[in-house]
Amino acid sequence: MRNIADTIRRLNIQRSAKFSAFAPNLNTRLRPMSEFGSNPGELHAWTYIPSTTRPAVPLVVALHGCTQTAADYDSGSGWSDLAEKYGFALLFPEQQRSNNANLCFNWFATGDTTRGQGEVHSISQMVTTLADRHSIDRANIYVTGLSAGGAMTAAVLATYPELFRAGAIIAGLPYGSASSIPQAFDRMRGHGLQESRILANQVRQASDHQGPWPSISVWHGTADKTVDPINMEAIIGQWWHLHELSEKPIVTGLVQHHESRAWSDNEGVIQVEAHAISGMGHGIPIKSSGLDGYGTARPFMLDVGISSTWHIAKTWGLIGEQEAVSAERNAKSSAPSLTTEESRPVRRPVGGVIEDALRAAGLMK
């Protein structure tokens, strides 16, 4: 039975949600979504439905980072601009300070990252409710997020894989890598990460799902001092083992000057891809100009000449092929030429070689 203090806290949360959290916000085009289930994680939900809708609309779920709101994340990343142009729907779960003082999703808390419980269950309820209310194509639902939102993206993909076709984790951490605040800070520093096979088993044990698994895209700045880039390799390894892919990437090269790798399954379908953004710190890579430019520079929204929002949407097939070709041609023609040394890709397998190096450095158990 809940005590009086807990009951009062919950009543205050409900009153706040009713009278303030969903009040009209003149600085955003997002609209509040209410009554989406039991909401055990006590999250808020915001949506964007494009003016030009069609039957079977794709849906992108976007999870903000710490200190951000749904509106902040949308404005900085440019997701609703892209959705309006190409006609897909958006869902923005939003954290409350009563859950986390820094507005971080609780990606490290077992009660919020276990199927049927907490924040992951609230997000799944939002997805299914929105799909029921609108003409959402249930075969084309995607999820992405930054930092704590990226780690929660990994948690949602692990606990409710049947809901999503693909996900994109930006400056995040692998699912199941931490279960307490001290462990969370250790993992953010790159310490104590488990072997890829163990991390993959964490995903397998998170639900009774037998596959197919969502495909995954990972983005991380090479100069990230908040979440060590070694977490990108851990995420790659987790999903590489899950999909049972070959060790060596089938594609290595540069995308707008930044290293890109991809791994495909036996049918040649790319299931894991990774983008290491050279010299970028902690945040989302954006591009403020050009046909493929989306987002607005601000804290954790870093204008480094490449829009992860645009590229992720392209990977998911949300951008028309002709528009994608035109934008890429325009970006290529306006980019400075690379020297031979600059254009040489870095090739790194994700299996035994990397894990041996991590153990030698004391970064992996």
Rank of each mutant, 00 (worst) to 15 (best):
49 I>L: 15
50 P>W: 06
51 S>P: 00
51 S>T: 14
52 T>Y: 09
52 T>W: 02
54 R>H: 15
55 P>Q: 12
55 P>E: 13
55 P>K: 14
55 P>M: 11
57 V>I: 15
58 P>D: 14
59 L>I: 10
59 L>D: 08
59 L>R: 05
60 V>F: 09
61 V>R: 02
63 L>F: 10
63 L>Y: 07
66 C>K: 06
67 T>R: 12
67 T>P: 02
68 Q>E: 15
69 T>H: 12
69 T>V: 04
71 A>D: 14
71 A>P: 04
71 A>K: 03
72 D>P: 01
73 Y>A: 05
73 Y>R: 03
74 D>A: 09
76 G>K: 05
77 S>W: 04
77 S>P: 00
79 W>S: 07
79 W>N: 05
81 D>G: 12
81 D>M: 13
82 L>D: 13
82 L>R: 08
83 A>S: 15
84 E>D: 15
84 E>L: 12
85 K>L: 14
87 G>N: 13
88 F>Y: 15
88 F>R: 09
89 A>D: 10
89 A>S: 13
90 L>K: 07
90 L>S: 10
94 E>A: 06
95 Q>Y: 02
95 Q>N: 04
96 Q>N: 07
96 Q>W: 05
96 Q>K: 01
97 R>Y: 06
98 S>Q: 09
100 N>G: 00
101 A>M: 12
102 N>R: 06
103 L>G: 00
104 C>V: 08
104 C>L: 08
105 F>P: 10
105 F>K: 05
105 F>I: 08
107 W>Q: 01
107 W>C: 01
110 T>V: 07
111 G>C: 04
111 G>K: 03
111 G>W: 01
112 D>F: 02
115 R>A: 08
116 G>S: 05
117 Q>T: 04
117 Q>R: 08
117 Q>G: 06
117 Q>D: 07
118 G>W: 05
119 E>Q: 15
121 H>V: 01
122 S>R: 02
125 Q>F: 07
125 Q>G: 03
125 Q>W: 01
125 Q>M: 11
125 Q>V: 00
127 V>L: 11
127 V>M: 09
128 T>N: 00
129 T>S: 15
130 L>T: 09
130 L>D: 04
131 A>L: 09
131 A>P: 01
133 R>M: 09
134 H>A: 12
134 H>R: 09
135 S>M: 10
135 S>W: 08
135 S>F: 08
136 I>K: 11
137 D>L: 08
138 R>S: 07
138 R>E: 06
139 A>G: 14
139 A>L: 12
140 N>D: 14
142 Y>I: 10
142 Y>K: 12
144 T>N: 08
146 L>F: 13
147 S>Q: 10
147 S>W: 12
149 G>C: 11
150 G>I: 02
151 A>F: 08
156 V>Q: 06
157 L>V: 04
163 L>K: 05
166 A>M: 10
168 A>R: 03
168 A>N: 07
169 I>Y: 00
169 I>C: 09
171 A>F: 07
174 P>A: 04
174 P>G: 00
